[in-house]
Structure formats: C-alpha cells, structure tokens
Design a protein around this nucleic acid. Structure first.
Ligand code: SF4
Ligand code: SF4
Lengths: 135, 135
DNA sequence: TTATATACGACTTAATTAGTCTTATATATA
DNA sequence: TATATATAAGACTAATTAAGTCGTATATAA
C-alpha cells in the first residue's frame, strides 16, 4: 500500500515540533504526545530511537526532555524515517545482502532490478528533503 | 514500511511476462502462476483488475487467456500499481477528499502538506516509468 | 528524598495483507 | 451439443505487520 507507518509520522511531527518550539530548552514527550494525541509510551520509544540515531539528545530527570542534536538543514527526511523503520524498501529483496535469502522468487524474478532502480529514485527524494525545508 | 504489496509485484510480473512472451496469442493465468510460483486464484483476481483498468483484455473459454491491451510504451508503472492498490499514498489523509474524515489529527497535523509534496514526487516517478523501460 | 523525566523489554490488540474455497459463466473444439 | 478449459467474482481464513500497552528500571533537578 506504500504507506509510511504512523510511527514515522509521529517521529516526523516530533522533530518538526522540536525545531519550531525548542529555544534552548528541553521538550518532553508528554508535551508532544499531548498536543498531537499520540500515545505517550509509543512516542517515548520513537524518541529513544531518534536518540540512538543522533538526531536528538536526551536529558533525563526533572527538567529533562529532548533537544535536536543537529541543525534542521542537516536532518534529512531519510534520517528520521530510517531511524524508525527497520528498512523502508519497496520489496523484501531490496536492501537485503542476499536477495535469495529474503525471497524465494529472487532467482526467477523479472521485476527485481527495475524496482531496485525505482527504489533508488525514491531514496533520492527522501535524502534530498531536509527538516528545514518542511518547517 | 513503504512496501509495495505482493499483489502489485505479481501484477507487474504478469504484465512484463506478457509483454515478453505474447506473440499474438493469449497467455493463461496458469502459465504465469506456474512459472513464478504465484497462487493461481490470487493472480487470477489481479488479472481481472488489470482487465477492468484496460491494461489487458481477456478471452474466456478454451484457448482463452489474456493479452496486453496497449503498447508497452503506453503502460505506466502507475497504471499497474493503481489498478491493484486501492490507493497507494504515504498517509491516510492524502488522496482523501476530506482529510479530517480520514484522520483525526488532520486539523493539528504539521506534516500533512510536506508529505503531500513528497507524495507528488513519488507519483511522478511511477508515472514516468513505462513497462517498455523495464523489459 | 521526592517528583519528574527518560530507557526499554515483553506483551496484547488491531489492522492489513496474502492466500483459499466455492460457485458461476464463457467458449473452442471434438 | 457435450466436454474440457479458461476466466469472473464473492466470501472466507490464515499469516504477518503495525499500533498500542504494561511494567519496571534508571537518572536527575530541586
Ligand atoms: S525478488 Fe522479485 S518477488 Fe522477490 S521480493 Fe524481490 S521483487 Fe519481489
Ligand atoms: S493528517 Fe497528519 S497524522 Fe493524519 S494521516 Fe495525514 S500526515 Fe498522518
């Protein structure tokens, strides 16, 4: 269906929200989750993934929360999405080191290479769009 | 996860197979399903969708089967995929006449418009690729 | 020491995708 | 005209993935 997961949407919202509202101070999960009606626990774990991908940094404890770790011009759409989605590819075989391992049809498949090229074009779109551009 | 459905893959395989192997004669579901290890019943229904979208034409009965209804340069990737997927959009709100009807967050969402622009770029990729180009 | 915040694995539920079953209809050909 | 072969199509089931929840641990400012 080519859908982005809700998780990716939430993460994008959070990153954009932080870009617009952090002014040297931390922003909490509670705040973002409250504003957009996102499950607190779910968003919390997405934020943790963003931390692991160096997109944001966390501060635990009272007055804690999150802050962006980069300038908005240096955060790509691809960064945020790939931090959340394990692999966002059109097919099972793409991005797999051994295609035959990921798909039983890999050896007889006539659309594998064409779709891989389409994938590259899509990747380019995500890699050419920065958070700054979508503020 | 941004995956194309297996159904779309099967339909694409079938269209490409027909383009390569039909020489004025019909090609049956059985033949295609057999070669690529696709469920017969499943592929049969995909073919029916392709018929409804005027991509192929069907011939019932003995010696029946399917034939392409257009030249390969006139069949777009977008045609095949949209024939199979009800709507292939990044988010629930895109392609919905009333966004608020499709998503409760539509009024407070800050990523709707940016993602709609990304969608347009992706649509362009699918609309610029023809079956002829992937033979 | 307490209140507030993130960290994170395990688990459950909901939704979607993929595949199957069944019956009907069309048609070439013997 | 009977038969074998092919598509047409709705209802149903199984498998997979996505979305959300629960519980517990850890960090830290005040
Ligand atoms: S090899 Fe072909 S069938 Fe298998 S995942 Fe890749 S594109 Fe799909
Ligand atoms: S309005 Fe926002 S949250 Fe809702 S589907 Fe569209 S992008 Fe996603």
């Amino acid at each position: 269906m080519l859908r982005l997961s809700k998780k990716s949407e939430y993460a994008l919202m959070a990153v954009k929200y932080m870009a617009l509202n952090q002014n040297g101070k931390c922003i909490t999960v509670k705040e973002i989750a409250g504003i957009y009606g996102i499950s607190f626990q779910l968003l919390a774990k997405l934020m943790q993934k963003l931390v692991k991908n160096n997109i944001i940094i966390s501060q635990q404890g009272t007055k804690g929360g999150y802050m962006l770790n980069k300038q908005t011009k240096d955060i790509l759409l691809a960064d945020v999405i790939s931090a959340i989605e394990e692999n966002y590819s059109l097919t099972d075989c793409i991005e797999s080191e051994d295609p035959e391992d990921s798909c039983a049809r890999a050896n007889c498949c006539i659309i594998r290479d064409p779709l891989a090229k389409v994938q590259q074009k899509i990747n380019r779109i995500f890699a050419e769009t920065t958070i700054k551009q979508i503020l």
